[in-house]
Design a protein around this nucleic acid. Structure first.
Lengths: 72, 72
DNA sequence: CTGTGACTAAGAGTCCGTA
DNA sequence: TTACGGACTCTTAGTCACA
């Protein structure tokens, strides 16, 4: 079973690219530090669900979507 | 926009009832502390996504499902 | 534009109990 | 069976300088 952090990292990165945003742009939108965004995409962070919710809003999607394993 | 913790609390409680589990049963299954389960259902906790994943496994569902707002 | 190490404050998560 | 409290440890939140 794949780690939920890996799924989140992949989905955030994909959604970010889709919107043509840099990590910096996303950080600004979500009101999160740039380096924190980096840490999540690199899977060195294990965020709380409220942080994921912030990302979801900034990426114009839902919390559930960011945690959905698209690979199956 | 409704808080993600409220959605989680509602969904966990519903899934737990559906399986006829007590908070203690669920805690044992998910290998999470009994008082922590209580705290999440009362929305006084803001869990990390790995904990939500543990709940999902114990409740025979997915992380995304536990964070899906069924009220819409 | 991104990765990384280091740091403090806050809160996640555990364990003991009581009503 | 659940809510709630105290006390505790350890990780996350959030930020910085630097590569």
């Amino acid at each position: 079973m794949e780690d939920v952090c890996a799924i989140l990292a992949r989905n955030i990165k994909a959604a970010r690219k889709r919107l043509n945003l840099s990590q910096e742009d996303l950080a600004a939108r979500a009101e999160i530090d740039r380096t924190y965004v980096s840490g999540i995409e690199r899977q060195v962070r294990n965020p709380t669900i409220t942080v994921v919710a912030k990302f979801a809003e900034a990426l114009e999607t839902t919390t559930a979507d960011l945690l959905t394993d698209e690979s199956r």
